[in-house]
């Protein structure tokens, strides 16, 4: 069973591109444009990593981070954002965010971060990813 990755970003292209690249690497990927249905989905199924945009309509990235910490403490959260602001970064770190990427995101760096996150989890959902 491959690792499950959730991507939440109101920019559809972000989810699409991250998914096509991550699926190529053998991950199972689900994408959401808003946080509310994503959090619903998290109640049904465990995910290894959640990649979320910070600024979104309705529930924002920091709230996603808090909700995930509560629901599924083992799941790693990686945050991406169109603007970096120290206050937000501090809050994210306090909320135990795994990594923090300003846009534009380098996909390779994101994948590297996901690999590290999964390694920390000790391959909870199976073996190391690989082609």
């Amino acid at each position: 069973m491959s690792e499950k990755i959730m991507i939440i970003d109101d920019e559809k292209i972000v989810g699409d591109m991250a998914r096509i690249s991550l699926e190529e690497d053998g991950y199972e990927v689900e994408t959401f444009l808003t946080a509310a249905p994503a959090l619903e989905r998290l109640k049904e199924a465990p995910f290894d990593v959640v990649v979320t945009d910070l600024k979104m309509k309705g529930i924002d990235g920091l709230e996603v981070l808090r909700a995930v910490r509560e629901m599924s403490p083992k799941t790693k959260v990686i945050m991406i954002t169109a603007f970096a602001n120290l206050d937000v970064a501090i809050e994210a770190i306090k909320g135990d965010v795994f990594d923090f990427f300003p846009k534009p995101v380098r996909i390779k760096e994101l994948k590297e971060s996901i690999r590290k996150a999964l390694a920390q989890n000790g391959g909870q959902n199976g073996e190391q990813p690989g082609k």
Partner: peptide, 24 residues
């Protein structure tokens, strides 16, 4: 400026995926 970051990021990600997965 922040708003510009979104389309710039999108273009960047499409280009990266295009480059990475070109053969496929």
């Amino acid at each position: 400026a922040h708003e510009l970051n979104n389309p710039v990021n999108n273009i960047s990600m499409v280009a990266q995926a295009y480059d990475e997965l070109y053969d496929k």
